[in-house]
Amino acid sequence: MGPLIAYEIITENTNLFFAFLIGIGFGFVLERAGFSSSRKLVGVFYGYDTVVLKVFFTAGITAMLGLLFFSLFGWIDLDLIYINPTYLYSTIVGGIIMGAGFIIGGFCPGTSICAASIGKIDAMFFVGGIFIGVIIFNESYPLWENFYKAKFMGAPKLSEFLGISDGIMALLFVGMAMAAFWLGERFEKIKKPVVY
């Protein structure tokens, strides 16, 4: 039955419409959960507020378990799900740049738009910075191209990489999430609460 676009049950345009609705919902919930505050977001790096970790880990395991059960019931063909291709070196460097930008600027790209839309000036600067970065990257792309495309690994899944089944991988991942949540809450207790 699924994915809906691959099976032409819905058109690309209908998909964009659904994406629009889901995007509005995502932005709304993000804002209501306090994700438009850079102090809350960077709390995960200083250990006083690990809600970012918890939210995205929870989203990850929910989607993961959902997809695996959908596949089990024959509702979705997992082979047709798009997986971002991995270019190992650029992924590592990109991750470092993204993480540094997260700590310095206090936002990740999605939450910066969210915060800018409710009028946060620091977020508007952050969005401006994203555009400057995009322009610099694109204009100097020929310089980076070889590195950008180095160590292409296709679109491997962790389970394939480790040679275990998707289900076992899911169980390990849920275990990791639970451990991370427990650790996060321990840190929150140790650190002095920050008022913001």
Partner: peptide
């Protein structure tokens, strides 16, 4: 989450 993960780890993958 944990019981669901246990179930999904125990059942064979759907390859159809």
């Amino acid at each position: 989450a944990v019981p669901l993960a246990l179930i999904i780890a125990a059942v064979p993958e759907n390859t159809t």
